[in-house]
Amino acid sequence: MSSLTQTPGPLLTATQKFPTVLWNDSSDLDELRQSISFGGVGATCNPVIAYTTISKHPDIWAPRIKAIAEGNPTWTESQIGWQAVKDMSVEAAKLLEPAFAEHQGRNGRLSMQTDPRYYRDAQALSDQAVEFSELAPNIVVKVPATATGIEAIEDATYRGVSMNVTVSFSVPQAVRSAEAIERGLKRREAEGLDVSTMGPVVTIMVGRLDDWMKSVVARDGIYLDPSALEWAGVAAFKKAYGIFRERGFRSRLLSAAFRNVLQWSEFQGGDVVVSPPFAWQKIINASDYEPTARMDEPVDPHYIEQLRRIPDFNRAYDEDGMTPEEFISFGPTAKTLRQFLGADEQLDQLVRDLLTPAP
């Protein structure tokens, strides 16, 4: 039987049954084309993804990076690398234009991440968000959920940028970010500016919250049912979803940083974005799982009780568990920011090796 006549897999079935949408956690064009065939209507790029994609396709990107350098002889390695990221993002965004038109701006988005080196400068983050949003009509721009980032998120939203809040792992980060987007949208509306095609999302990196809980339990010798540790991110996401619906936030939640299939299956039926890496999409789509609506199913109270033994889970799960000033020192935030900063350094090194090879 040809692939054109096969029964749709679980990913496509889910997108047909539920308002839950699929975005690909990569801007690799080959992966994105396949994800679109699975029902995908969005994609993302960040420093780690960009570096990985360029490294994976040196035959494509090495000559392109050299051409960028030749055309801009005074540019730094960072400027050259970031131009490659911009080019990659614009090309991925082009593949999503049909979905963007079909969904009137709510989907069909390509997420671009602001330079992590700007994480202390709200104005620089907002200005770069505006720059990136003008590269293609269907760009949504990532800014981290720190106190500085939240300031930038409100300002960029007011300036007409559809935001994707990132480096976000907790209910307090998600709620404060959604509130900032609402303030930005209301400021636009008060001035008669259009918001009808804006498509903001607020990410919770569910798997990275799980990772942090596991590291804290190991570090501090906390005794609990280990199966509960697979549910921390799911629990935070579902808690935030209830708050978003109750308060009528116009942002949608986005689940990212997959570590297990619960981080897809438990969110089906919700009006949310689920963004698995392509490798996870292949695993899910090759399975015989029948998607069912589970977003409104609460996490087993036993798991919540077990997770409550971890102080950092309470900080992540309770709406008032952290202040915005505390976000940047929360373990997953610090680790992820450092990873993104490191990926920028790796991209600089990659450009250096191409332009000035070691003798």
Rank of each mutant, 00 (worst) to 15 (best):
D344V: 15
F169I: 00
E131H: 10
T197M: 12
T74P: 00
F18M: 01
A334W: 04
V48H: 04
P301D: 11
D348W: 08
D121I: 02
L11W: 03
D30C: 07
T203P: 05
D155H: 11
Q104Y: 09
S170C: 04
A124K: 14
K94M: 09
A293R: 10
A92R: 00
T203K: 10
G160V: 07
R352K: 12
A180Q: 00
W61Q: 13
G321E: 04
S287W: 12
F313K: 07
E154C: 05
R338E: 15
P172G: 00
R315H: 13
K142T: 01
R352Y: 13
A101T: 15
P116W: 04
F340E: 03
A334K: 14
D194C: 07
D87A: 11
L185F: 08
E290S: 09
N138Q: 06
G331M: 09
K86I: 11
D312A: 15
M163P: 04
Q104V: 10
A334F: 07
A279S: 14
A67R: 14
N107P: 00
E91H: 09
K282E: 13
A218I: 06
E305T: 11
T13K: 13
A235P: 02
S133A: 15
T7N: 14
G42S: 05
T148V: 12
S126T: 12
A145N: 00
G248C: 05
D320V: 01
W264F: 15
A257C: 15
T13L: 09
L253D: 07
I54W: 06
E290I: 15
P301S: 01
I304P: 02
D155Q: 13
V130N: 05
N46R: 01
T197E: 11
G81D: 00
G105T: 03
G192S: 05
G207T: 11
V167C: 07
K94Q: 13
I54Y: 13
A124P: 01
L341V: 12
I65R: 07
W280S: 06
V274F: 05
M1D: 09
L12Y: 14
D225I: 08
K66D: 06
I68R: 09
A218K: 15
D59N: 14
P357T: 07
K56P: 03
T292S: 11
G39V: 04
A14D: 03
P359W: 05
W61R: 12
G199F: 05
D225H: 12
V217D: 10
M163K: 01
A180E: 02
P332I: 04
L229V: 02
T5C: 04
G207P: 12
D30F: 06
I139F: 10
P324D: 01
T323E: 13
